[in-house]
Simulated assay, not measured.
Amino acid sequence: MTTIDMPNAQSIPLRPAGSTMSAVTYEDYGDASVLKSSTVDVPHRRPGQLLLQVVASSVNPIDYRMRQGEMRAVLPGGFPRIPGYDVAGYVADNGGDGPFQVGDRVIAFLKHLTGGASADYATCAVHCVAKIPDDLPFDEAAAMPLAGTTALQSLRDHAKMQAGNRVLVNGASGGVGMFAVQIAKASGCHVDAVASGDNEAYCRSLGADGFIDYTQTDFTKIGQTWDIIFDAAGKSSYFEARAVLASGGHYVSTEPNLSGLAVSLLTWPLSKSGRIMLAKPNGEDLLQLIDLYRQSKLKITIDRHYGLSHLADAHRRVEQGVDRGKVVVMNDSM
């Protein structure tokens, strides 16, 4: 783990000095050892995109799953690849127009199928970027995009969350779960958190009204029902959870697979529906997360910081399982 000094707009160049940059890449599928520090071309900014200077990023489970080759059947061909979807940093080039100015502090949820955040610079569609206030640190901001958007869209769009709903969050202490508990509470819901027993105090600090230790109790067998069951950990199934869904309730999982797709297709007309979701980058959703942060309704927990040159260690940490919050990567190559 590396200690990183937090940069500012006056101390670092916003525009690339040349045509190349530092990045972490992989040239074949495999374990974290395939990740290597490399020198690659600065990405070309196309119309409708911004060039962003990356100050911080974070590691999500999708990063190591793609690196391992789990999605090779749907990915476009070609190596090397740069992992990572979360960006916190500065606008380096805006093409001379649009709502963002060079030097703006921003976060972005990269729309590229293969990522690109683990580098000095990344490109991103303008509508997937949001300005961040000066009082939001880059490391906390970098934890927001993918995990926060996943939680928000799962509850709001897929589960049709309303004030007064009873919401259960399975995997409540993890990266997506910590956002889900707080978003549901901010929306006026009763929230029950499921995690290991040593995370009870933490989950309650996020706002959870009730707590279930999954090592001691199976939430599907305790005689309670919920309007929304959000499986942020991908550990339960619709068929296990259906018995404790209230009539008209919604089950949402973040675990993409063929059986999950079948559940989504087969249960949509039923009174108790199941959905497997993949987050869609959207700048307006990022602004909603930022607004919750500024209202002190959303706090960010960082498990550990790593330097970009230690990205392989950050991947290993996430693969091992993070009990609380997110793993953040600071760009130590500039």
Results as ranks from 00 to 15, higher is better:
Ala279Trp: 08
Asp231Cys: 10
Tyr121Ala: 08
Gly177Ala: 00
Ala172Lys: 07
Arg316Gly: 10
Asn199Arg: 14
Gln101Tyr: 00
Val167Lys: 02
Ile107Asp: 05
Arg45Ser: 09
Ile82Val: 15
Gln49Cys: 05
Leu50Gln: 09
Met21Leu: 03
Ser58His: 09
Gly78Val: 04
Asn165Met: 14
Ser237Lys: 05
Leu14Pro: 09
Gly307Phe: 08
Asp86Val: 11
Tyr214Trp: 07
Ile228His: 00
Arg294Tyr: 03
Gln162Ala: 15
Pro7Gly: 08
Asn165Trp: 03
Thr20Arg: 12
Ser37Met: 03
Tyr29Phe: 13
Arg46Ala: 12
Gly96Asn: 11
Ala119Ile: 06
Ser247Pro: 06
Ala201Arg: 11
Gly177Val: 03
Asp231Glu: 11
Ala142Trp: 10
Val42Lys: 00
Gln101Pro: 00
Arg317Gly: 07
Gln216Met: 10
Met1Trp: 05
Phe230Ser: 09
Met71Pro: 00
His305Phe: 07
Leu245Thr: 00
Ala141Trp: 01
Ala312Tyr: 00
Ser173Ile: 03
Gly197Ala: 06
Gln53Phe: 14
Met1Phe: 09
Ala232Glu: 04
Leu113Tyr: 03
Tyr90His: 13
Ser118Trp: 07
Asn199Met: 08
Ala172Leu: 04
Gly148Leu: 09
Val244Leu: 05
Met6Cys: 13
Thr20Gln: 09
Arg294His: 12
Gln153Thr: 06
Asp104Gln: 03
Gly48Arg: 02
Ser273Gly: 10
Asn199Trp: 01
Gly249Trp: 02
Gly116Cys: 01
Asp97Val: 09
Ser236Gln: 13
Ala147Met: 11
Leu52Cys: 12
Thr25Ile: 13
Tyr64Gly: 13
Asn257Ser: 13
Arg316Asp: 11
Ser273Asp: 10
Val167Arg: 01
Ala92Lys: 11
Cys203Val: 02
Asp198Phe: 03
Pro145Lys: 12
Asp313Lys: 15
Arg156Tyr: 07
Leu110Lys: 04
Arg15Thr: 15
His127Leu: 02
Leu168Val: 13
Gln49Met: 13
Val169Thr: 10
His127Met: 01
Leu287Lys: 15
Ile228Lys: 00
Lys272Ala: 03
Gln153Lys: 08
Val126Leu: 04
Ile12Ser: 02
Gly30Met: 01
Ala184Trp: 07
Asn331Gln: 10
Leu206Cys: 04
Ala262Cys: 00
Asn257Ile: 08
Val322Arg: 04
Ser264Trp: 06
His310Pro: 00
Gln320Phe: 04
Ala262His: 02
Ala180Trp: 01
Val194Ile: 14
Gly84Ser: 14
Met1Leu: 14
Glu70Phe: 12
Met161Glu: 02
Phe79Ser: 07
Asp285Phe: 06
Cys203Gly: 03
Glu140Trp: 04
Leu266Phe: 08
Pro256Ala: 12
Phe179Pro: 00
Pro83Arg: 02
Leu136Val: 13
Thr39Gln: 11
Arg324Ser: 06
Glu240Asp: 15
Ser118Pro: 00
Val91Pro: 10
Met144His: 07
Lys111Thr: 10
Ala92Phe: 13
Phe179Glu: 06
Pro256Gly: 03
Asp323Cys: 01
Val328His: 09
Met6Leu: 14
Lys326Ser: 14
Leu136Pro: 02
Asn282Ile: 06
Phe179Tyr: 14
Ser309Phe: 03
Thr25Met: 01
